[in-house]
Amino acid sequence: MKNRSATKNRIGRKLKRYWPLYVMLLPGAVYLIINNYLPMFGLMIAFKKVNYEVGIFRSDWVGLSNFKFIFATNDAFVMFRNTFLYNLAFIILGNSFALIVAIALDTVRKRFLKNTAQVIILLPYLLSMVIVTYVVFAFLSPGNGFVNNSLLAPLGMDPVEWYNDPRPWPVILTIVYLWMNFGYTSILYYSTLIGIDKSLYEAAVMDGAGVLKQITYVTLPCMKNTMIIMIILAVGRICYTDFGLFYQVPMHSGMLYSTTQTIDTFVYRALLEQNSIGRSAAAGFLQSVLGFILVMAANALVSRFDKESALI
């Protein structure tokens, strides 16, 4: 009896203390329920043969048959490999490059340059993939492209049929990705960076720390949480690729499949002629579940060493 009332008391005290926090959470939670959780009934579409006339709920269940098409192709290995490797490269290179940029931005003292740079580096992020495709094409066009005409020709090198040769594309796509996204990521890092307490640096300098020491002993530890979170979140998206980057930028050239085909482009191409909501839902479901497993593993790993940086 005593015990129970004690527990009750504790809960009561806790409630009294934390209720404002829960109230704060409410609006966002309601939005997430409407925008994300209610539509999740759609996940069952992956296991159904949808007939709109009878409605999604009453459509027939078809087990896993919607998933078969993903594996019923010789390309399955290629597209999974490409998806994972590209994402891995994007995570590693993207984050380290963005961090370097953020540090450089923080270092530059000339306010005008600092501010201009912050505006300008976001430019590529603002362009639509269609435009990026044109820009890339302006560089790589076999006939009039900048690279063939203005770089290779003066060097006496043969022009390259960029859109027919799959080999350079892992590099090209990585560069395009970095170019488009480093602005966004480095602005995120930069906002964390300038939030670092200046007295920490002062203390480090007092101890005789140089630039590199300041980075390793002050900047990086302060950035650690943000970086780890960024990486964990990216791991959750590891089965997804930017459709525009892998479909439009290579001009959907069939000859580049060995290095440009990813799960998303495959699903799009395979279902081009079939209006199969079930199959596309199945592909999305698979991508989500794989991402979820990986992210939970990554999170568990992180929280083992450093509880504070973990996502959950």
């Binding site: 078969k68 098409f69 019923a72 192709t73 390309d75 495959f266 191409r269 395979a270 279902l271 081009l272 002629e273 079939q274 199969s276 199959r279």
Partner: peptide
């Protein structure tokens, strides 16, 4: 044969 169609389309 929709799985085959998907594969062939690709």
């Amino acid at each position: 044969v929709s799985d085959q169609v998907a594969a062939c389309t690709n």
